[in-house]
Protein backbone atom coordinates (compact mmCIF):
# COMPACT_ATOMS: atom_id res chain seq x y z
CA UNK A 1 0.00 0.00 0.00
CA UNK A 2 2.51 2.64 -0.91
CA UNK A 3 1.39 5.91 -2.33
CA UNK A 4 -2.05 4.71 -3.26
CA UNK A 5 -4.21 7.60 -4.26
CA UNK A 6 -7.93 7.38 -3.86
CA UNK A 7 -9.36 6.05 -7.05
CA UNK A 8 -12.67 4.68 -8.16
CA UNK A 9 -11.77 1.23 -6.89
CA UNK A 10 -10.72 2.12 -3.34
CA UNK A 11 -13.19 1.23 -0.61
CA UNK A 12 -15.07 4.03 1.09
CA UNK A 13 -13.76 4.69 4.59
CA UNK A 14 -15.78 7.66 5.81
CA UNK A 15 -19.16 8.79 4.58
CA UNK A 16 -20.95 11.81 6.00
CA UNK A 17 -24.48 12.32 4.69
CA UNK A 18 -26.70 15.35 5.27
CA UNK A 19 -25.08 16.17 8.59
CA UNK A 20 -26.31 19.13 10.63
CA UNK A 21 -24.92 19.90 14.08
CA UNK A 22 -24.33 22.72 16.51
CA UNK A 23 -24.60 23.88 20.07
CA UNK A 24 -27.58 24.42 22.35
CA UNK A 25 -30.10 23.82 19.61
CA UNK A 26 -28.53 26.06 17.01
CA UNK A 27 -26.90 24.40 14.05
CA UNK A 28 -23.49 25.60 13.01
CA UNK A 29 -23.07 23.05 10.25
CA UNK A 30 -25.95 22.55 7.82
CA UNK A 31 -26.66 19.50 5.66
CA UNK A 32 -23.06 18.63 4.93
CA UNK A 33 -22.08 15.55 2.95
CA UNK A 34 -18.59 14.31 2.31
CA UNK A 35 -16.75 11.08 1.70
CA UNK A 36 -13.22 9.82 2.06
CA UNK A 37 -11.88 6.73 0.32
CA UNK A 38 -9.08 4.56 1.57
CA UNK A 39 -5.65 5.97 0.79
CA UNK A 40 -6.93 9.43 0.03
CA UNK A 41 -5.92 12.73 1.53
CA UNK A 42 -8.86 15.10 1.70
CA UNK A 43 -8.95 18.65 2.95
CA UNK A 44 -11.73 20.81 4.28
CA UNK A 45 -10.83 24.45 3.86
CA UNK A 46 -12.64 27.39 5.28
CA UNK A 47 -12.11 30.52 7.27
CA UNK A 48 -12.25 30.88 11.02
CA UNK A 49 -15.75 30.11 12.28
CA UNK A 50 -16.90 28.40 9.09
CA UNK A 51 -17.75 25.27 11.10
CA UNK A 52 -14.78 23.01 10.41
CA UNK A 53 -14.29 22.08 14.05
CA UNK A 54 -18.00 21.54 14.60
CA UNK A 55 -18.09 19.22 11.59
CA UNK A 56 -15.21 17.16 12.94
CA UNK A 57 -16.60 17.15 16.45
CA UNK A 58 -19.92 15.90 15.10
CA UNK A 59 -18.18 13.11 13.21
CA UNK A 60 -16.49 12.10 16.48
CA UNK A 61 -19.77 12.29 18.46
CA UNK A 62 -18.30 15.06 20.59
CA UNK A 63 -21.30 17.03 19.40
CA UNK A 64 -24.58 15.26 18.82
CA UNK A 65 -25.75 15.83 15.23
CA UNK A 66 -29.29 17.14 14.86
CA UNK A 67 -29.68 15.23 11.60
CA UNK A 68 -27.71 13.18 9.09
CA UNK A 69 -25.53 10.13 9.38
CA UNK A 70 -21.86 9.30 9.75
CA UNK A 71 -20.59 5.96 8.47
CA UNK A 72 -17.07 4.81 9.19
CA UNK A 73 -15.57 1.66 7.73
CA UNK A 74 -19.01 0.30 6.94
CA UNK A 75 -20.54 0.97 10.35
CA UNK A 76 -23.04 3.66 11.26
CA UNK A 77 -21.25 5.64 13.98
CA UNK A 78 -23.58 8.65 14.13
CA UNK A 79 -24.35 8.12 17.80
CA UNK A 80 -21.45 5.85 18.74
CA UNK A 81 -19.47 7.02 21.77
CA UNK A 82 -16.28 8.91 20.97
CA UNK A 83 -13.94 6.36 22.53
CA UNK A 84 -15.50 3.58 20.45
CA UNK A 85 -15.06 5.51 17.23
CA UNK A 86 -11.42 6.00 18.16
CA UNK A 87 -11.00 2.29 18.81
CA UNK A 88 -12.58 1.51 15.43
CA UNK A 89 -9.66 3.27 13.77
CA UNK A 90 -10.67 6.90 13.36
CA UNK A 91 -8.08 9.01 15.15
CA UNK A 92 -8.86 12.68 15.64
CA UNK A 93 -6.34 15.39 16.48
CA UNK A 94 -8.26 18.47 17.63
CA UNK A 95 -6.85 21.96 17.20
CA UNK A 96 -6.57 22.28 21.00
CA UNK A 97 -4.67 18.97 20.95
CA UNK A 98 -5.95 17.79 24.37
CA UNK A 99 -2.63 16.33 25.42
CA UNK A 100 -2.03 15.05 28.94
CA UNK A 101 0.09 17.97 30.07
CA UNK A 102 1.38 16.51 33.32
CA UNK A 103 2.50 13.29 31.70
CA UNK A 104 5.68 12.60 29.81
CA UNK A 105 5.88 12.34 26.04
CA UNK A 106 6.36 8.60 26.38
CA UNK A 107 3.29 8.22 28.58
CA UNK A 108 1.18 10.24 26.16
CA UNK A 109 2.28 7.93 23.37
CA UNK A 110 1.61 4.80 25.46
CA UNK A 111 -1.89 6.06 26.14
CA UNK A 112 -2.34 6.46 22.40
CA UNK A 113 -2.49 2.70 22.02
CA UNK A 114 -5.02 2.27 24.89
CA UNK A 115 -6.26 -0.28 25.80
CA UNK A 116 -3.82 -2.46 23.87
CA UNK A 117 -0.14 -2.85 24.62
CA UNK A 118 1.90 -0.38 22.66
CA UNK A 119 3.39 -1.90 19.53
CA UNK A 120 7.18 -1.31 19.64
CA UNK A 121 7.34 -1.10 15.86
CA UNK A 122 4.68 1.56 15.81
CA UNK A 123 6.49 3.49 18.54
CA UNK A 124 9.70 3.29 16.51
CA UNK A 125 7.83 4.57 13.48
CA UNK A 126 6.44 7.57 15.42
CA UNK A 127 9.90 8.40 16.76
CA UNK A 128 11.18 8.02 13.20
CA UNK A 129 8.67 10.48 11.79
CA UNK A 130 9.15 12.87 14.72
CA UNK A 131 12.71 12.51 16.00
CA UNK A 132 12.09 15.43 18.36
CA UNK A 133 9.68 13.28 20.37
CA UNK A 134 12.36 10.65 20.88
CA UNK A 135 14.72 13.31 22.21
CA UNK A 136 12.09 14.59 24.62
CA UNK A 137 10.45 11.35 25.61
CA UNK A 138 10.77 12.02 29.36
CA UNK A 139 9.70 15.65 29.23
CA UNK A 140 6.23 16.68 30.38
CA UNK A 141 3.96 17.52 27.47
CA UNK A 142 3.02 20.85 29.04
CA UNK A 143 6.57 22.12 28.92
CA UNK A 144 7.06 21.62 25.19
CA UNK A 145 6.75 24.18 22.41
CA UNK A 146 3.62 24.44 20.29
CA UNK A 147 5.26 22.64 17.38
CA UNK A 148 6.45 19.79 19.57
CA UNK A 149 3.02 19.51 21.16
CA UNK A 150 1.49 19.22 17.69
CA UNK A 151 3.94 16.46 16.82
CA UNK A 152 3.00 14.68 20.04
CA UNK A 153 -0.70 15.01 19.32
CA UNK A 154 -0.23 13.44 15.89
CA UNK A 155 2.16 10.85 17.30
CA UNK A 156 -0.32 9.90 20.00
CA UNK A 157 -3.07 9.51 17.39
CA UNK A 158 -0.80 7.31 15.26
CA UNK A 159 -0.14 4.96 18.17
CA UNK A 160 -3.68 3.58 17.84
CA UNK A 161 -2.81 2.43 14.28
CA UNK A 162 -5.69 4.39 12.80
CA UNK A 163 -7.23 3.67 9.42
CA UNK A 164 -8.07 7.34 9.11
CA UNK A 165 -6.30 10.32 10.66
CA UNK A 166 -8.45 13.41 11.02
CA UNK A 167 -6.70 16.66 11.90
CA UNK A 168 -8.21 20.01 12.77
CA UNK A 169 -5.91 22.88 11.85
CA UNK A 170 -2.64 21.17 12.69
CA UNK A 171 -0.73 24.37 12.01
CA UNK A 172 -2.49 26.45 14.69
CA UNK A 173 0.06 28.52 16.51
CA UNK A 174 2.99 27.27 14.45
CA UNK A 175 5.49 29.44 12.61
CA UNK A 176 5.44 29.15 8.80
CA UNK A 177 8.60 27.08 8.97
CA UNK A 178 7.12 24.64 11.50
CA UNK A 179 3.85 24.52 9.55
CA UNK A 180 5.72 23.44 6.44
CA UNK A 181 7.57 20.91 8.58
CA UNK A 182 4.28 19.52 9.93
CA UNK A 183 2.94 19.05 6.41
CA UNK A 184 6.13 17.34 5.36
CA UNK A 185 5.46 14.79 8.11
CA UNK A 186 1.84 14.40 6.98
CA UNK A 187 2.98 13.85 3.40
CA UNK A 188 5.34 11.17 4.65
CA UNK A 189 2.48 9.45 6.49
CA UNK A 190 0.28 9.68 3.43
CA UNK A 191 3.00 8.15 1.33
CA UNK A 192 3.06 5.31 3.86
CA UNK A 193 -0.58 4.59 2.97
CA UNK A 194 -2.44 6.48 5.71
CA UNK A 195 -5.77 8.04 4.85
CA UNK A 196 -5.92 11.66 6.00
CA UNK A 197 -8.59 14.33 6.41
CA UNK A 198 -7.35 17.75 7.36
CA UNK A 199 -9.20 20.97 8.06
CA UNK A 200 -7.07 23.99 7.36
CA UNK A 201 -6.89 27.74 7.07
CA UNK A 202 -3.38 27.52 5.64
CA UNK A 203 -4.91 26.60 2.33
CA UNK A 204 -1.81 26.35 0.11
CA UNK A 205 -0.24 23.68 2.32
CA UNK A 206 -3.47 21.69 2.51
CA UNK A 207 -4.05 21.84 -1.25
CA UNK A 208 -0.57 20.57 -1.84
CA UNK A 209 -1.05 17.57 0.45
CA UNK A 210 -4.55 16.52 -0.57
CA UNK A 211 -6.03 15.20 -3.79
CA UNK A 212 -9.53 16.40 -3.11
CA UNK A 213 -11.02 19.17 -1.10
CA UNK A 214 -14.21 20.78 0.17
CA UNK A 215 -14.76 24.48 0.80
CA UNK A 216 -16.82 25.18 3.93
CA UNK A 217 -18.46 28.59 4.26
CA UNK A 218 -20.96 29.52 6.96
CA UNK A 219 -21.52 25.87 7.77
CA UNK A 220 -22.21 24.72 4.20
CA UNK A 221 -20.04 23.23 1.48
CA UNK A 222 -19.92 25.75 -1.32
CA UNK A 223 -17.45 23.94 -3.52
CA UNK A 224 -15.81 20.57 -3.87
CA UNK A 225 -13.42 18.97 -6.30
CA UNK A 226 -9.86 17.89 -6.86
CA UNK A 227 -7.30 20.15 -5.31
CA UNK A 228 -6.16 21.19 -8.80
CA UNK A 229 -9.67 22.35 -9.62
CA UNK A 230 -9.92 24.18 -6.32
CA UNK A 231 -6.57 25.88 -6.79
CA UNK A 232 -7.77 27.16 -10.18
CA UNK A 233 -11.08 28.41 -8.85
CA UNK A 234 -11.13 32.21 -8.82
CA UNK A 235 -13.17 32.34 -5.59
CA UNK A 236 -10.70 30.09 -3.78
CA UNK A 237 -7.81 32.07 -5.18
CA UNK A 238 -9.32 35.32 -4.00
CA UNK A 239 -10.50 34.17 -0.56
CA UNK A 240 -7.84 31.68 0.50
CA UNK A 241 -4.79 31.92 -1.69
CA UNK A 242 -4.33 35.65 -1.57
CA UNK A 243 -4.34 35.98 -5.35
CA UNK A 244 -5.65 39.37 -6.28
Amino acid sequence: MTGVSGGAGAPRLLQVAGLSAGYSGEDVVHDVSLHVDEGEAVTVIGSNGAGKSTLFRAIMSLVTPSSGTVTFDGNDVTTTATHRITRMGLAYVPAERHLFGDMSVAENLLLGSYPRRPDPERLAMVYDVFPRLAERRNQHARTMSGGEQQMLAVGRALMSKPKLLMLDEPTTGLSPLLATEAYRALAELKAGGLTIVVAEQQVPLALELAQRGYVLENGRFTLEGTTDELADDPEVQRAYLGVA
Binding site: H83, V93, H98, R156
Partner: peptide
Amino acid sequence: QDEQGAMLVGID
Protein backbone atom coordinates in the same frame (compact mmCIF):
# COMPACT_ATOMS: atom_id res chain seq x y z
CA GLN B 1 -6.03 15.61 33.25
CA ASP B 2 -8.09 15.87 30.10
CA GLU B 3 -11.34 13.99 29.75
CA GLN B 4 -11.75 14.77 26.07
CA GLY B 5 -8.16 13.83 25.35
CA ALA B 6 -8.83 10.53 27.09
CA MET B 7 -11.86 9.83 24.91
CA LEU B 8 -9.78 10.58 21.84
CA VAL B 9 -7.31 7.85 22.71
CA GLY B 10 -10.14 5.37 23.16
CA ILE B 11 -10.75 5.58 26.92
CA ASP B 12 -14.31 5.40 28.21
